[in-house]
Design a protein around this nucleic acid. Structure first.
Lengths: 292, 292
DNA sequence: TAAAAATACTCCATAGGTATTTTAT
DNA sequence: ATAAAATACCTATGGAGTATTTTTA
């Protein structure tokens, strides 16, 4: 059975055309090399070298083997290296689930930092509805997701990434626009644009309890879980809303953002499964754990 | 040191995901396979399988190795096969030297028969002057050549392929054209077109001795070693010539060919070196030796 | 004659086998 | 309880080393 040792010995001899020198290269003695080359020729059933006590040269078959054996050895070395790289999490694929809100958090920066440090890992970002995030991690469909703080049970884990207060979004021409502070109760009669509870329960409930604390039940006119769309609708004057403060960074014209210091912080973090063996996940968690 | 055995065992296990079954595939016992897989993982420094007593599955690194190891094994098998094919003369290159006269002999058919039987051998046909043919074989520049019968010394060999009588070529409007037989001496005063002795001595000398036997010294007006050109010049009425009978097959208009049964046969054959180790040469000689 | 490859002989590392234990469902 | 992988222990194949012989330019 031809194995890699035969090829390594053969390649050394094919290069140096001298048994003693080639033997030294591969760290064996000349008789050992002689025997292995003879065994290889016997195994293949053909001569690879023409040799006498004065010279060694390749036959046509030997010349062919020199070309192809080098490829075999190279591809074996490559296979070993890439396998080890995968094991170290330096190569492979990381499947990340996110919702459209992602664009307004620190998550994009985190993904960029990861992709810079692990340039050979393919990052598969899949958008899904907020409610489906955790389940996709549980089934292994995703390696991790970004979600609001949540209680997760074994084998899932949660780690906080970032906290955001909420803020009020008003049309720029709204009577209260321009104020530094605004008591939510003043929006009692306004039409609200909110995320539907069925899709984004955490955010929905947080806003609802703010309104209840202010003593009113908001009149919800429109639903969408896309925060960017909510801000757009507010800019069109179709209603008011309460959105994560990061949305203020959107630079959208026609909207006034008024901070809500009394709102509880909306904490976001990443969720992953401790049973997930994808080595790329370890690298991501390590980076997520570091302060940026 | 990772070798092919490790990869073969690994691939069997990666495919069947069951130690006992995979062990049977590669014809070893289960404990032997267990130990070799463990040794491979140890050598690579990473886990390739997640296993317990109920199930075996590939890790990310194992999945990567499955892909690349298959390529390594395939390329090794390919290297072995092509090397053996080269040794058997079924692959490689055959360098053949010829002169332009080649088109008028049995040689093209022989080359075609060879290339049909050995479709993976590249045939390198190099045209050269008749005088240079033998030398190119001696230096190894060519593996074989077609030449007129010649005495060659070790390590060169000659084998006859084909014999050709010579014939007279006359312009179609020549007074003697149309005759079945023609004594050469009747061309005594005619302008002759011949191959120069410096380039094609064998043919030149054969024609000269025919003329001398007929009792005259030909008046040589033009020289060229290209038999096709000679026939063209005859067709233009510029002279007469004596050419190999195969030229009659050329179908050239304006030329009459008259056989010369008294001419000695011009024997052609192939010349090669017995020291030439090109396995393709053996295949060619075998085909050349067979009657077509 | 001398440089270099092949051979003879010995040793030992390790792959492989049998029997058994451990493990997880 | 059972199927399956791991481990213990033994055997023997064959790869490697040293010493020597053979070969050929």
């Amino acid at each position: 059975m031809v194995d890699i040792r035969h090829l390594r010995y053969f390649l050394a001899l094919a290069e140096h055309l001298h048994f003693a020198k080639a033997a030294a290269i591969v760290n064996v003695t000349q008789p050992s090399l002689s025997r292995q080359i003879a065994a290889l020729e016997d195994e293949l059933g053909c001569e690879l070298f023409v040799r006498n006590s004065r010279s060694v040269s390749l036959t046509a078959a030997g010349l062919e083997l020199q070309r192809s054996a080098q490829k075999v050895v190279d591809s074996l070395n490559g296979a070993i290296r890439t396998t080890q790289a995968v094991a170290r999490g330096e190569r492979g694929e990381l499947k990340i689930a996110f919702t459209s809100m992602i664009a307004w958090t620190a998550f994009p920066t985190l993904v960029r930092r990861y992709s810079v440090q692990y340039p050979n890992v393919g990052i598969n970002l899949t958008e899904m509805l907020p409610n489906d995030l955790i389940q996709s991690v549980r089934t292994g469909e995703s390696d991790l997701c970004l979600a609001f703080r949540t209680e997760v049970s074994q084998p899932l884990s949660y780690e906080a990434l970032q906290s955001e207060k909420l803020c009020i979004a008003l049309p720029a021409d709204h009577p209260h626009a321009g104020k530094k502070r605004l008591n939510l109760s003043l929006l009692k009669g306004e039409p609200f644009i909110l995320s539907p509870r069925t899709i984004a329960p955490t955010l929905h409930d947080a806003i609802m309890s703010l309104c209840h604390a202010a003593g009113f039940e908001p009149q919800v006119r429109m639903h969408t879980h896309l925060q960017g769309t909510i801000v757009n609708l507010v800019a069109e004057g179709l209603g008011v809303s309460v959105v994560p403060q990061a949305m203020a960074k959107s630079g959208m014209q026609g909207v006034a953002f008024i901070s809500l210091p009394e709102s509880s912080a909306m904490e976001m973090g990443i969720v992953w499964s401790q049973e997930n063996q994808n080595p790329c996940l370890m690298g991501f968690l390590e980076i997520a754990g570091k302060p940026n």
